[in-house]
């Protein structure tokens, strides 16, 4: 049935509304990031959508520690946290995806470790908060507090269930016959995995990487509890962006937020072609 004009209009209104709900906070952040100090101090000028005097001062401040118009200088710039975030989130993602992929393949293809999928999931049955205090104590004993490897390791552990389960569903979709055909041709098990199965789940790996990276990238709790100074990450650092004199530095936070949005976007764009490509579409005729 063809929708009536009223229905079409209603649809558009709803679409616009839904889009606005998603986009307005992002727009607000972008606008805020380019506003000078006196413009995001709402008490001074009132709320307005676009910066009247756009400035890069906020970015300057978080990267160099000072900017015109702000008396208090920052002794701890955002450079180090950005690096810490990039390193720990990437390392945690790479490890979680490698381990998860290998584990998922084993469980998907061999009749081994039948309980493994569920026990891996068990890692996620508790909210991270419930286990983080014991983890913090363990990490302290092991000397892993405020280290890049301590944080990367907890990221790996916490996101492993996701990468494992995601990859398992992707492997489950690759028909057994595909591998059997390769085996019959004289291919070794490992080569089948490397040359046939893995390329067939490329799209799955890409989306798993993106998903896990975003989880790690946006973590606040674990970084808060397991770092002190050297390896503080962007979210923790952002929270601390305040001074006694000026209060919360919203403009700087927005600037940092904008920067923090870049890596996931770049990652997303660079693997986009895998995300949209069909998986094993057409491999089998049933």
């Amino acid at each position: 049935m063809r929708p009536s004009p009223a229905q079409i209009a209603l649809r558009y209104v709803l679409i616009i509304l839904a889009t606005a709900i998603v986009l307005i906070p992002i727009l607000w952040m972008i606008s805020l990031a380019f506003k000078p100090y006196n413009e995001w101090q709402t008490a001074a000028t009132g709320v307005h959508w676009w910066p009247k005097n756009p400035t890069l001062g906020n970015f300057e401040y978080i990267f160099t520690g000072q900017t015109e118009g702000l008396v208090v200088s920052l002794d701890f710039t955002a450079v180090r946290p950005i690096f810490a975030s990039l390193l720990t989130a990437s390392l945690g993602t790479i490890l979680a995806v490698i381990v998860g992929t290998l584990g998922a393949y084993a469980v998907s293809r061999f009749k081994v470790a039948n309980n493994l999928p569920l026990s891996v999931l068990q890692l996620r049955l508790f909210p991270p908060l419930a286990v983080m205090i014991p983890v913090m104590i363990m990490w302290a004993y092991l000397g892993m507090i405020d280290t890049w490897w301590g944080l990367s390791l907890i990221y790996t552990i916490v996101t492993l269930p996701f990468s494992f389960w995601l990859m398992k569903t992707f492997f489950d979709e690759v028909p057994l016959e595909i591998e059997e055909a390769a085996l019959v041709e004289g291919c070794s098990r490992f080569r089948v995995f490397w040359k046939v199965t893995l390329p067939m789940v490329k799209a799955g790996i890409a989306s798993t990487i993106l998903f896990v990276f975003i989880l790690n990238w946006s973590d606040y709790l674990m970084a808060l509890l397991l770092t002190r100074k050297d390896w503080v990450t962007i979210p923790v650092y952002m929270n601390a962006l305040a001074t006694a004199m000026s209060g919360q530095l919203y403009g700087m936070k927005a600037a940092l937020g904008l920067i923090a949005a870049i890596p996931p976007v770049i990652l997303g764009l660079s693997i986009q072609r895998y995300l949209v490509r069909g998986l094993t579409f057409g491999a089998l005729k049933q």
Binding site: P175, A182, L183, E185, P199, F281, A283, K285
Partner: peptide, 27 residues
């Protein structure tokens, strides 16, 4: 399985769809 030297044509063909026709044949 990989040492038996048999050829097997599966009912659903089990084509390696991520490869070209040439690569399938050359596999």
């Amino acid at each position: 399985i990989d040492r038996r030297g048999v050829g097997y044509v599966f009912q659903n063909y089990a084509i390696f769809t991520h490869m070209s026709v040439y690569d399938n044949l050359a596999f």
